[in-house]
Design a binder for these strands. Structure first.
Lengths: 172, 172
DNA sequence: AGTGTCATGTAAAAGGTTACATGATTGG
DNA sequence: CCAATCATGTAACCTTTTACATGACACT
């Protein structure tokens, strides 16, 4: 149930509409917590229903601007400090690695080569994202930069690992 | 729908019962694709129903040993070579980082310190797993070792990043 | 006048988690 | 004979994905 906390987190910075939040998810937050349009609107309605956020203003085209309520801030802080993060994540990229033995060695090698390329592209995309953002000193900037640094290091680590792995199976 | 491919992949090595597969998920595969008992049994029944696997033998206590069928092998190869892996994964650990600004600096710092410890523990667990496995030359060993190396590098990368990140916010 | 973007909502299906339920066999 | 382990199954619920559906406003 982290989507609700992702929304609370974004609303803790500034009020926003579902549409605004959707755009944020498509750019920055997509890398750590992808969410679809339908999911976001549904969850916002539910959050408003349970009083964690409120409709602060209504604009043209039915736009509803949500604002975080005190209860929402409390819930966000509770999640950040008390709820243990999940240890195990899913990675279908890694899952495939376990079963590369059913392929011919050249196919297995090709898969790892693809991962090298994927990691390079990912790294480059993050670099461009970093350059395109107008960083300032607010919270999302400070911690967004730290999260982005994680992404850069992650992609670099994966590229190096994939290069090493491709090398492991090439000689056979 | 990667669970079905995880099961096909394990059965491509050797026939196994739901219980056997559950044990494998609890140890080695848990790190890349956690699955529950109920999920595994349900999916096995479905896979047998669609003919991708067959019940090869029945043992004591209602044990059913499943064997992969040719159609299952074909599906597994198709997934490995043709289906594009998913780029974006979810990480509630990283998601929290974006919102650490709502906490006091010492609380944010404590969160990152916790991540350092978590990464060290994860690294140590994988090291022990590596030592406890009786590695041989079969496919799962070769590629399992490569996957495990990924895990070790990942935990090391995360530890270093968390140390760097904790350092970033300490001076404020 | 028409296109693109802004803007929201809902329904169905698939995937995943938690909990309940049951019973056979083995080893001490 | 008792406990641990082996062994399977199902139901309810929550989360996520995909698809459908609608319309207002701004700009050219």
């Amino acid at each position: 149930m982290s989507l609700r906390h992702a929304l609370l987190g974004l609303l803790s910075e500034r009020p926003a509409s579902g549409y605004d939040l959707l755009k944020t998810f498509e750019t920055s937050l997509a890398n750590v917590w992808p969410a679809t349009q339908s999911q976001i609107y549904t969850e916002l309605t539910r959050l408003a229903g349970s009083g964690l956020i409120t409709v602060a203003a209504e604009g043209p085209r039915g736009r509803k601007e949500y604002r975080i309520a005190d209860e929402g801030m409390a819930e966000l802080r509770h999640w950040l400090t008390e709820v243990a993060p999940q240890r195990n994540t899913r990675s279908d990229i890694l899952l495939r690695v376990f079963f590369l033995g059913v392929l011919r060695p050249d196919q297995a090698h090709a898969y790892l080569t693809e991962l090298i390329a994927m990691s390079e592209e990912g790294h480059e995309q993050l670099r461009q994202l970093h350059d395109s953002i107008d960083w300032d000193d607010d919270n999302l900037s400070v911690y967004g930069r730290i999260a982005l640094e994680y992404g850069l290091r992650f992609q670099a680590m994966r590229r190096e690992w994939a290069e090493w792995a491709a090398d492991q199976i090439k000689p056979r």
